[in-house]
Amino acid sequence: MIDIEKLRLDTPSCEKVLHFNNAGSSLMPAPVFDALQRVLRDENEVGGYEAERRAQDDIQAFYSEFAALLNAEPDEIAFVENATRAWDMAFYGLHLEPGDRVITHGSEYASNYLALLQQSRRLGFEIDLVPSDESGQIDVEALDDMIAPRTKLIAITHVPTQGGLVNPAAEVGKIARKHGVLYLLDACQSVGQIDLDVAEIGCDILSGTGRKFLRGPRGTGFLYVRKSTLEKIDPPFIDLLSAKWTGANSFEFAKGAKRFENWESYVAGRVGLMEAVRYARKVGLANIEARVTGLAQDLRAALSAIEGVSVHDLGRKKCGIVTFTKDGIAPKTIADSLRADRINVSVSPITCARLDLEPRNLEALTRASVHYFNTHDEVALFVDAVKEA
């Protein structure tokens, strides 16, 4: 059982504003803030190098904490500046050639799909879109049938930014293993709200952020790369941390996933993200997932009962992201109205999810994301505010 009162004490600004924008930028728990401040104070007092030296235990704990979170090995984890750059470090290092095929889905995040388009133009591979089933999630049977001899990669987003859909990541993993195809999973919106196990999912690569449901600092992210996949990726750029200069005309990559890191990094953020993972693990990811899912179900049901409000979340399984529209009112107008009532939400525009929203004739959605520190009373207050918006 989650002690909501304790968690709310760790999130003091909850008492001032209702936060329903955790998919955009979640509230930082007090222990994470304290960890950040500790490193920043050291940087102020003794300088960056000495501050980093003092933080070495926490820096090393970053790898073990993430390994425990994902059921991975510490040397399969890299610290990267954000989720998109983590995804890019893996994707842009793949050996794709003219005639190769990459499979993705209409729920793919804009930054990822733009990278696919750019590399397709550069390298000449083809992009295949797996269709959705009747629920809106990836059609796994269709995916199985689409795999061809030149299919080299399946790249999907676990939870899209524009809705509560949870794509069947583990089922996709079974298909990828069956055909021996690399599998890249964007877990930016799922890590921290869903209990993730890379062994169960079967992905070769997984990327994510620190600032969303993990409640870590902005400007932090991570990358998981399975050991057996490391040699299949040529990092798009390297430095004196990710590689060793072994001779005038030779070098070798760092061991493990550190080959995807930069020497210069946000040390305070890395320590803060480590503390955020540790905090989430103490709460328990299974506990978090159960509470977030339950609150979101209640919110969807209540919003659906409001005249003129439509909930637009797809999929058989849904998560803590809840998206909706209200007849005659633009999503940004709703967001501005709610913000005036001290309720924070986000807006998902078509430019973040064109392949998904355009076929549904949706220009934008209001996105209200719950987290475990939200309460049923807050959900009721939120619903009342939407009625009045």
Rank of each mutant, 00 (worst) to 15 (best):
N287M: 03
F66G: 15
I205P: 00
D356M: 15
R121Y: 13
A380R: 11
A385D: 07
T104Y: 05
D144V: 06
F91A: 05
N112T: 03
P331K: 01
L303K: 04
S132R: 09
I334P: 15
D298L: 09
E289I: 02
A78T: 01
D128S: 14
A280Q: 09
L116A: 10
A83Y: 05
N112D: 03
V225C: 00
N112V: 03
I59T: 00
G164E: 05
E97F: 11
I154L: 08
T220A: 06
D100S: 01
I288A: 10
T104F: 06
G247H: 03
G284W: 11
Y266R: 04
H95R: 13
Y266M: 04
E264V: 04
Y266G: 06
H19E: 11
A67L: 05
E97L: 12
A72Q: 03
S265N: 05
S26H: 03
F213N: 12
L206N: 00
N21H: 12
G48E: 14
P359D: 11
I321D: 02
E126W: 12
E65V: 14
T229W: 07
D341T: 07
K6A: 05
F213G: 08
E15C: 08
F253S: 03
V159A: 10
L117T: 09
R354H: 14
F213H: 14
D88N: 14
L96T: 05
A268Q: 06
E45A: 13
L69K: 07
W87I: 06
D75R: 13
G284N: 09
R300D: 01
D313E: 02
I4N: 08
A286F: 03
D75V: 09
H312A: 08
R342V: 12
A389G: 10
V172Y: 06
I306Q: 05
G164L: 07
E378S: 04
D341A: 12
